[in-house]
């Protein structure tokens, strides 16, 4: 793993020199700040002027914020990989001791680690509704896998960085569409279960009130769906490389 760590060190230099990548790196911090300070303030205003209590939707807001953080980091990782594919750098890494597998692990692991850090900060500090430790551990694996899922979606379906930029809109739908399940009852809402993000919303909708087994099942199912999605996209990406 030493070569992989060295690649990560150069990634930091690359991100510093690329304005778009740098923005992607700090954007989650802006989002976390907005959720932390903005949501309670907006809620106060809505209650005062419209008698509308936003706190009923804090779970939805937390889920969307969590997934947006992963989406941003997934896009950052995806764009780096698209750049490296456009420049035939992935082809070159494949003939170094890092190998193509090592390269992929390095890129996807970076997305996972960054997601875990940012998502943990979001859940522990900025989430508008309090999050229990159990919820934190249930949500993090899914939220962390969302970033490599998005990154792989971009590199598996985009032929180059320009197409990748267009596909980010599609990637946004992966986060936005399953949010609709929040407002839909059973059994219709299960139609959204093929979206990995659906399970994050479901777990937050459940809250932390006394259904530990159901929460555990949701986490296992959600993590499974995420892993399956990552696997399918990974295979597609690897086929493209040949």
């Amino acid at each position: 793993m030493i070569p992989a760590l060295r690649l990560l060190r150069s990634d930091l230099r690359l991100v510093r020199r690329d304005a778009m990548l740098f923005f992607y790196l700090i954007a989650p911090l802006l989002l976390i700040s907005a959720v932390w300070f903005g949501v309670p303030a907006v809620n106060d205003v809505l209650i005062s002027y419209f008698a509308f209590d936003l706190s009923e939707y804090y779970g939805l807001i937390t889920g969307a914020s969590l997934l947006l953080v992963s989406l941003i980091l997934g896009c950052m990782c995806g764009f780096m990989m698209l750049d490296e594919r456009d420049e035939y750098l992935i082809q070159y890494y494949a003939v170094t001791p890092l190998s193509r597998r090592g390269y992929l692990v390095c890129r996807l692991a970076a997305a996972v680690v960054l997601s875990v850090i940012y998502d943990a900060v979001l859940l522990l500090c900025a989430a508008p509704a309090p999050i229990s430790i159990a919820q934190l551990f249930y949500l993090l694996p899914m939220a962390a896998l969302e970033a490599p899922f998005i990154a792989l979606f971009l590199v598996a379906y985009a032929a180059n960085k320009v197409e990748g930029l267009a596909l980010t809109k599609g990637a946004g739908l992966f986060v936005a569409v399953p949010a609709a399940a929040w407002f839909i009852g059973s059994p219709l809402k299960y139609g959204f279960a093929i979206f990995p993000a659906y399970w994050v919303y479901e777990l937050l909708k459940l809250g932390h009130g006394g259904q530990p087994w159901r929460a555990l099942l949701l986490m296992l199912a959600g993590t499974g769906v995420h892993m399956l999605a990552v696997y399918v996209l990974l295979r597609r990406f690897l086929r493209r490389q040949d």
Binding site: P3, R6, S10, L14, D18, E87, Y88, L89, Y92, T96
Partner: peptide, 19 residues
């Protein structure tokens, strides 16, 4: 195939570090 935003030395140092 190189990182265009890196200098020649930075590119070589990066690839050297993989060995």
């Amino acid at each position: 195939n190189f990182y265009g935003r890196f200098t020649a030395m930075e590119n070589l140092s990066l690839f050297r570090s993989l060995y």
